[in-house]
């Protein structure tokens, strides 16, 4: 039977060495590949993950088993979607993809990828062209998206406001910096969004603006909503019940019961 003393926390010391080794491995790999990581997130992460499941394009976790030349030509072929790639870039990406099976697990890997790419001069360069103010309006729905798509806030939170069907996007730039975020917003290769935006694509400009806004939110402290609509809702329910009680306060019970009571 479950014993509350036996919680995972109590056994943390048992797992600790394993976690430590894993972390070190990740760090080593990622430190080498910092530039490549950046390259991957810029060029590929809009459609591909490595071990994170299929988006628009397939998961690339398995390609590490390909032979290098095949991988090279495959990467080269992606020029169609990702724009011209220099030979060094192709090589770097091939190396990066070949190395993936050295990494312990997709989850930690993703985390590492994002950690190492927090500060990017290149990113801010792109995003400064866009207006985070417009982005905010688009995000919150003050301005409608050009093609009639849902505004982001319907499902996503930013700074504590917004729906909670999708993930909180306040710190999303840490996970998808720069172009990855832009292409993510533009191509919407995610669950639910994929089909919801099929007929209402987000334009490139809008994607840039929203990405700019999200880039900004990551820097601001998270504010919490003052009053939750749920509290207000519960209040409404109580109020209506009160109203019913008030409206029928003079309701007379059974006539005969009243007579007997009067007596």
């Amino acid at each position: 039977m479950f014993n509350w003393k036996n919680s995972p926390r109590q056994h943390f010391h048992r797992y600790f060495p394993a976690i430590l080794v894993t972390a070190i491995c990740c760090f080593a790999t990622s430190a080498n590949a910092q530039n490549t990581n950046q390259l991957f997130t810029e060029k590929c992460a809009g459609c591909h993950t490595v071990g994170g499941g299929a988006l628009v394009g397939p998961d690339l976790a398995s390609v590490s088993s390909w032979n290098v030349s095949d991988l090279r030509s495959a990467v080269k072929r992606m020029e169609q979607s990702a724009g011209p790639l220099k030979d060094e870039e192709v090589d770097a990406l091939v190396d990066f993809l070949k190395q993936q099976n050295n990494l312990p697990s997709p989850a930690t890997k993703n985390k590492e990828t994002s950690k190492t790419t927090q500060e990017q001069p290149e990113t801010s360069q792109i995003l400064e062209l866009a207006s985070s103010e417009n982005g905010k309006k688009l995000f919150t729905g003050q301005t409608a998206l050009q093609n009639g798509g849902l505004s982001c806030i319907a499902c996503h939170q930013s700074n504590g406001r917004g729906g909670n069907m999708g993930p909180d996007l306040t710190l999303i730039t840490k996970k998808f910096p720069g172009n990855a975020l832009v292409s993510g917003i533009e191509k919407t290769p995610y669950k639910v969004m994929k089909s919801a935006y099929k007929a209402h694509p987000v334009t490139h400009q809008e994607a840039l603006d929203i990405a700019a806004y999200l880039n900004e939110t990551a820097k601001i402290e998270t504010k919490h909503e003052r009053t939750s609509p749920l509290t207000v809702g519960a209040g409404i329910a109580l109020a209506v019940l009160g109203l019913i009680a008030f409206g029928y306060r003079n309701r007379k019970g059974s006539a005969r019961a009243n007579l007997k009571r009067r007596k």
Binding site: L150, A154, C155, G163, M165, A196, L230
Partner: peptide, 11 residues
């Protein structure tokens, strides 16, 4: 999944 009144328009 709050704000369903908003996301229902897309789903």
């Amino acid at each position: 999944c709050k704000w369903g009144s908003a996301w229902c328009s897309g789903t």
